[in-house]
Amino acid sequence: MQLTFGGQVVFILGGTGALALEFAARAMAAGLTPVLTYRNAQGEQKITARLAERQHRYRTLDLDLARPQPAQALAPLRHSPDYLVDFAQGDLENLVAAADDNTAASYFKINISGRFMVVKAIARLMLQKRKGRMVFVSSAAAARPNPGQGFYAAAKSASEALYRNLGLELGERGITTVTLRPGYIAAGRGQQFIDNHQELIKDKIPIQRALTAREVADTLLFLLSDCAQGFNATALTLDGGMSAGK
């Protein structure tokens, strides 16, 4: 099946992770123009290194959810993006009852409130042309976290709720949202865990393997495509069946 896209520009929030970069490459291969955000020079270099051969077919934007008023960083966007794919997520692994109060508060401020400000600004840009599609990259851990993932799961769940309501509230004005919950991915932060827990992966996942970055990226591309617009204000789990059983 040939995927078709009614839009052109895809804004990639959190554009420096392995999965985001894979997605950007796949999006460019599909003819889309990514705008990838980064938080620091190191992140910008990661984008350049991964996408160097296509340097005229994407743009970058300095945007850090941790800065005050992060939405102000969107000013260089002259026009509304057609799509938003949100990979942004800080890491905080700790037992809930052991975490430092201020660290937890800061984590939620960045990963929920900061995200809200940016997504709100993009939604308002999309409203100007009554057209837009947002995909939030959540995690299977939002519903089934491991010990130590309480804050990660809480931030993902809260963000899922924001995206769900955006799709609920703005669907009639042409803006739709969907959340994807990937399971274990053989890329980025997940790679080392998978390498060290091969038996666990086979035991927990009915398809007996982790997902590849490529197949998650292609699923995201499908969710942006014209034929997937019926998925709105909902969450889809992509985990090889892991969360279906005990």
């Binding site: 308002r124 100007q128 004005r173």
Partner: peptide, 13 residues
Amino acid sequence: SIDFLELAVSLNS
């Protein structure tokens, strides 16, 4: 409420 949201965006633009 949805009309007010869109009107705010339009006023800004």
